[in-house]
Design a protein around this nucleic acid. Structure first.
Length: 234
DNA sequence: AATCTTTGCAACCGCATTGAA
DNA sequence: ATTCAATGCGGTTGCAAAGAT
């Protein structure tokens, strides 16, 4: 295999590498809309996106999935991560299943950034002054990052709302399945039952919640932050 | 003002697992 | 039983932005 200026030459042709463009995102979402998730190696042939299957799957899972929760990790989520990491170690995907809307990559990055260096949980365990200063800096940074993400997400939202506005029923099974594949098989069904899932898709442009610290619901023994979605929908 | 360092995240890589042929 | 493609997972890297010197 050869690599050249962000392109990778393989037996199948040229695969683009590096950061994704808005146009590539649009093509990938178009693929999912038409063919559902999976069979990622077909993306290139079916919608003309010059990315390999792995790259497409990763982009969808970590960035484009409509059920992703954006914004900073809340203190409650942080405590969950700490608890589950203590129990399971670096099993990020397992931990992620207990935090719907969060990806394994996101949790892994969060852990490495905030806890890894310290060699133990609770990075704010030095002095209180340092702790609060660190917290403030961290929150400022996260807010800035979030603003950047929101701008990006606005682009994605525009595409999403355009693509899915007339096809809720087509997309519903995919989202429902995504929900059910998480640890809590009842989630997808319950949401659908309550008409929430439909609303989530219809109002997709507005479901990018700033996570609330409260109202974390224990659901079938798992954790689910309903508050922010309910507020968006009510 | 310029340079160096730190931070957080997106994306890639290699390996393991799964499932179909 | 074997092979092979697709997918999943965890570790790692590269880069942009902000802070520190």
């Amino acid at each position: 295999m050869a690599q050249n200026m962000g392109w990778e030459v393989s037996g199948e042709g040229y695969w683009k590498k590096g950061p994704w463009t808005a146009e590539e995102d649009r093509l990938l979402m178009e693929y999912v809309k038409l063919h559902g998730e999976g069979r990622w190696n077909n993306v290139a042939t079916l919608v003309g996106l010059k990315r390999n299957g792995k790259s497409c799957r990763l982009r969808w899972v970590n960035y484009l999935r409509p059920d992703l929760k954006r914004g900073q990790i809340t203190p409650h989520e942080e405590s969950i991560i700490l608890e589950l990491h203590a129990r399971w170690g670096n099993r990020w995907s397992t931990i992620a299943r207990s935090l719907p809307g969060r990806t394994d990559n996101e949790i892994k990055n969060y852990w490495r950034t905030h806890f890894k260096k310290k060699g133990k949980p609770s990075s704010e365990s030095t002095t209180p002054e340092k702790s609060s200063a660190h917290m403030v800096r961290r929150q400022q940074f996260q807010q800035q990052q979030q603003q950047r993400h929101q701008q990006d997400q606005m682009d994605v939202n525009a595409i999403m709302s355009f693509m899915f506005k007339d096809s809720d029923d087509d997309y519903l099974p995919i989202l429902t399945q995504s929900m059910q594949e998480m640890s809590y098989p009842s989630c997808g069904g319950v949401l659908e039952e309550q008409g929430l899932l439909h609303s989530m898709i219809s109002g997709y442009g507005s479901i990018l919640p700033e996570a609330s610290n409260e109202d974390i619901t224990i659901w079938d023994g798992g954790l689910w932050n309903l508050d922010d979605r309910y507020h968006q929908l009510s």
